[in-house]
Design a protein around this nucleic acid. Structure first.
Lengths: 225, 225, 225, 225
DNA sequence: AATGAATGAGAGTTCATTCAT
DNA sequence: AATGAATGAACTCTCATTCAT
């Protein structure tokens, strides 16, 4: 039993090892430009071993995505549950998002990177993981939307905007911002082309400002602190 | 002359043919998953012919990106110049953006899709086109930022937010939203997984609502109509 | 008639134009690495036009080879006929060879470059030209051998070596030397690798020394000047 | 250990297998006309496998060249060291050369075949092997030249010719001869074209005669046996 | 369980040749 | 006669996946 325990633990460790290597590489170079060879080398296992833990490159990719999604959900849930009232819960969601971004930049980007699902191989293992990802995703939406619904019900938020839509606006604006900021980071400064963009922008700052603008529009004047 | 004219026109047509096929496929499958064979088949030319018009797959891709960027700029410029005052100019930018999205859904998505430039081949032709893309991109930023600067100077906009930052928020929120909506469209309905997302959202609607929220935060009360 | 004359002349000119461009490029880059595009560009004609004058790239190549061979023969013949006695005729052959090398370095190299005939396409036009090349080649051999035969008969040369064999030794030694010297020229000096070879060798000098050694072995002592 | 040993041996075998197939094909058809597909088929491995052992076709080619050069050097060194005095050492070089030619006709031809280095891809692996080839080549030159220098110093050779030049004459004459003889072999007999060349020449014979002529010119009368 | 050598389908690209104009 | 756009077969090289050990 002790032995079985240890073996199980070791197996889990290997899986984590692979996932960590995959995260870093997939993020840097995308699904298509990352090779199993590179991942194997990076996690100091043989290529064959990867296939003992994941049935295909895509399954590995999606497993990472799923993990990333679940962690985000957990963080959002924990932070928002600690907040007493909807406006603060809403802010807590933002804080969780930000914290997540700072703690797991790899995960973050993998979540927002599109993988066109129609391109994924039509294999059983892919569909399995995809299904789980959808579920995880839905849990996030539900969490945010519930807070807004509650906020309106309790009179904190005006009801100009419908809760689900607001949740979407918040989510998509944040994602758009982060993608953009990352894009900027990767870019070498093309000053010779008369670059107009300021390169000293701060991601965290820009995210907060985005949320402020959105909050401004929904919190009732009389309930503001 | 007449003959030369016609030949020139035909050459231009071929190029357009290729670009059109490329747009559709690159959008659907991304740069990495689209093959020159597919593009050739799609535009009913031979693979070799593609290389008469573009020196590499990447050049074709970037050429499309550049074209897309330039058209967006032209539309924004035209619409915003017709508007008399900054708030309306700002709205005009949004309208142009929306119109562009509806008119050229392919182009739109190619613009916002990231291609990590560090992954592009280090070839002369690539750098050439990349340089032009940067220039076109900068022109868009300049256009938007100028409007905001003017709006603040003339007292229409409050100056809580700095112009460039506001331009970025508007741009990134819009992109995030559109990406998300497209993502939704591509997805097969995973109702069996208890999907939470409503699938009857309307892109145009969601975009407008996003902008309203942003505008709400910047237009001074006393200048609103 | 005048018109026909002119047309013929023009046609001949075009052919010469193409051959000149081909010579330069084939020599520099070999048959396999030279493209018809390059040749066309170099002689300022269109690619299609080349095929009006030569049925294939190989035919062009072999035509050049044939021309090169004929010119060499003419030069050898002329020079050797002017010389009165076999030893001087033999030397004249060497001089002609040297002069040819200096006057037509392109031609020279094309002659000695191997084209494995078994690789040439099994086409009528190829066989045609190949046959002519063999004939021209044989004429050269005959010329040299005759001189040696005559030299022996007239008592100038000792008959240690059979005439044909001596002709071959002279020919192959010269070719080996020239190939080697050209090889050296093309090479960048790899001094960092402790290059041992002196790079100030002179082709003409080395050729003369080769012939001297050979002549030393065949001219009878008593007939030397 | 035993297992690792065996695996190592097998890997070495595969490499040898590939090299053997490459030799045969490169020789017959040259670098440019030989395809990796053919090599793969010939050694009964898959195309992909070739790339596990060599980073590119050119690396394979140059590796063969290097090996060929090193073997020649070893044979020359061994034979010449066994000979007591310079004239016999010089002859030993010739014998080694001949033996090499008979034992490794493939290698021999690959050595003397020109590959214009400026045509080789500008890649790290190519430069690596090229550097080694230069070193090996230099060792051969050094070996021959030293013998001649010693021969002059010890009074065996007259000093009409400078040692390096003589080494070059010997080397190039031999190469020219062998190339020519091989050329002849490949040729189908074009008797219908009145071929003048005798086709019963013997390579070994011709080589020996070439060297005799050269030796005749350099060995002092009084030291001849 | 772990390895890594082997596979082979398929990618982007080149180029001799053809042919409508 | 001259063009040059179009072709498509062939090339080198890559890489996810398999499988004997």
């Amino acid at each position: 039993m002790g032995i079985n325990e240890r073996k199980k633990r070791e197996k889990e460790q290997r899986k984590t090892q692979i996932i960590k290597a995959g995260e870093k590489l997939f993020l840097k170079k995308g699904l298509g430009n990352t090779t199993m060879d590179e991942i194997a080398k990076s996690c100091e296992l043989s290529k064959g071993t990867l296939y003992l833990y994941f049935r295909s490159k895509e399954e590995l990719y999606l497993t990472i995505m799923l993990k990333a999604m679940n962690i985000l959900y957990e963080m959002m849930k924990e932070k928002s549950e600690k907040a007493p009232v909807p406006p603060e819960k809403f802010r807590a969601i933002g804080e969780a998002y930000l914290e997540y971004y700072k703690k797991y930049p790899h995960y973050f980007n993998i979540i927002t990177r599109f993988v066109d699902h129609s391109l994924l191989a039509d294999r059983a293992e892919i569909k399995e993981v995809l299904g789980e990802i959808f579920k995880a995703n839905n849990k996030v939406w539900e969490l945010i939307t519930r807070i807004i619904v509650e906020g309106i019900k309790k009179g904190f938020f005006n009801n100009k905007v419908n809760p689900m839509e607001l949740a979407i606006i918040m989510w998509t604006s944040s994602n758009g911002m982060i993608q953009f900021m990352d894009h900027l980071k990767n870019e070498e400064h093309h000053e010779e082309d008369g670059a107009f963009m300021p390169f000293n922008l701060n991601s965290e700052d820009m995210l907060r400002k985005t949320w402020e603008l959105i909050m401004d529009g929904i919190i009732k004047e009389e309930t503001r602190k």
